[in-house]
Amino acid sequence: MKEVDIKHLSKLANIQLDKEEEKILQKDLDKIIIHIRKIQEVEVNKTPNTTHLSIEELPLRSDKKEKPLSVKEVLSNAQNPSKNHFTINRMINEDDS
């Protein structure tokens, strides 16, 4: 059963794999999934009821301004910044506003 479709997953993960690596990774993934499937054996009906590990409550921050980074710092790691913006190939055909 080929549950793990590497072409679909590489799209979800947004990684463009070379054909060679794709073949190797497909094999690796199939092997790993067999091991992970072990979790299907466990009886999970009587599990305790918590979604989060941390027992702490979510702390709330007061709505006070803090100093942002300077534009220079913000762009300090950017490739080809322009007019104080980050740049990327033309983004087309999406629903941005």
Binding site: I6, N14, I15, Q16, D18, L25, D28, R90
Partner: peptide, 30 residues
């Protein structure tokens, strides 16, 4: 295009163990 740039950058940047984990991680959340 921008999709292509990002996908190529990630492919080139990550070594294989990280790729494996990202792919499986995407799978178990799919």
């Amino acid at each position: 295009d921008f999709h292509d740039t990002i996908r190529k950058s990630r492919n080139e940047g990550f070594l294989s163990e990280v790729k494996r984990r990202i792919l499986i991680g995407s799978f178990v959340l799919s």
